[in-house]
Simulated assay, not measured.
Amino acid sequence: MIPWVHLDSAKTGDGAQELRLKRRGSEFSIMLGTNELMNSRLSGSEQALAKLSCQRIAGHRQPRILIGGLGMGFTLRAALAELGKDAGIVVAELVPAVVVWARGPMAEVFGGCLDDPRVAIQETDVGQLIRSGSAAWDAILLDVDNGPEGIVHKGNDALYSLAGLGAARTALKPGGVLAVWSQGPDSGFTRRLKQAGFAVEEVNTRANGKRGARHVIWIATAAGRF
């Protein structure tokens, strides 16, 4: 079996933990301690996050999309495939090294999507972008940490708090969608979405087509704003 090769390390946004980029042949992995956060062979649920969101805003003119977390680019690539030439996508990535990896050792995984004229990368906390504008986005896609129960950066918890969800609702245009990826179910988060004024659909999906780990995507629309 081909062994894993360590390519690089980077501190998480709060500097408290370390991410490690590894490669085995054409396969990449991003690790946090013993936890694998991402693997280039497992992209089904990240792609579903984009497809489900874009389907909900089909027909919006010049849609603006905010993606929280660059990861390995699967959500971004799927969104680009779904959206027209008039769309604009901003990707917020808190760890600058992840962007470096995307343009360097993992460039083949990204397939040039970072150079698409519809894409802008901002090395910042997605929460800051959410709080910076009202009715600014047609869709906000959050693939940050492991979902509402974060393990990478405790500051991410604010995104999934009642206040954070309220800010996301304010940041959405009428008819907009908040979509959230999670490693697993979280009934408390579903309740908070409803408390924040969202109508909620919870979708179960797989990490790799019909196989792999089961993940959850919440599709939330601002109730009463249509």
Rank of each mutant, 00 (worst) to 15 (best):
I2E: 02
V5E: 10
D14I: 05
G15V: 12
A16V: 11
A16P: 09
E18S: 09
R20M: 01
R20Q: 04
R24L: 02
G25E: 14
I30K: 03
I30M: 07
N35G: 01
N35H: 14
E36H: 03
L37N: 04
L37F: 07
M38D: 00
S40E: 07
R41Y: 05
S45I: 15
E46W: 09
Q47M: 10
Q47K: 15
A48P: 06
C54V: 11
I57P: 13
G59D: 09
R61P: 06
Q62M: 10
Q62A: 15
P63C: 11
I65L: 07
G68W: 15
G68Y: 15
G69A: 09
G69E: 04
G69F: 14
L70S: 00
F74A: 13
L76G: 03
R77N: 05
A81H: 15
A81R: 14
E82K: 09
L83P: 03
L83D: 12
G84I: 12
K85F: 03
G88C: 08
I89F: 00
I89H: 00
V91G: 03
A92W: 04
E93A: 02
L94T: 07
P96N: 04
V99F: 00
A102F: 02
R103P: 03
G104N: 04
P105D: 05
M106N: 05
A107R: 15
E108L: 08
F110R: 06
G111F: 08
G111H: 08
G111R: 10
G112L: 05
C113E: 13
D116R: 14
D116L: 14
A120I: 04
A120K: 14
A120H: 05
I121A: 07
E123A: 06
E123C: 11
D125L: 01
L129K: 03
I130C: 09
R131D: 03
R131Y: 01
G133E: 14
G133I: 00
A136S: 15
A136K: 11
W137C: 02
W137V: 02
W137N: 02
L141K: 09
L142D: 11
L142S: 14
D143I: 11
V144P: 14
V144S: 12
N146S: 11
G147S: 09
P148E: 13
E149M: 13
G150I: 13
I151A: 07
H153P: 01
H153K: 06
K154N: 08
K154W: 12
G155N: 06
G155A: 04
G155C: 01
A158E: 12
A158Y: 09
A158P: 02
A158F: 08
A158Q: 10
Y160C: 08
G164A: 12
G166E: 13
G166Y: 13
A168F: 09
K173Q: 07
G175C: 06
G175V: 03
L178E: 06
A179Y: 14
A179E: 10
W181T: 12
Q183S: 12
G184F: 13
S187D: 15
A196Y: 13
G197A: 05
E201V: 08
E202I: 01
R206F: 13
A207T: 15
K210Q: 12
G212K: 05
G212W: 01
G212M: 02
A213L: 14
H215L: 10
H215V: 04
V216H: 11
I217G: 11
I219G: 07
I219M: 15
A223V: 02
R225W: 15
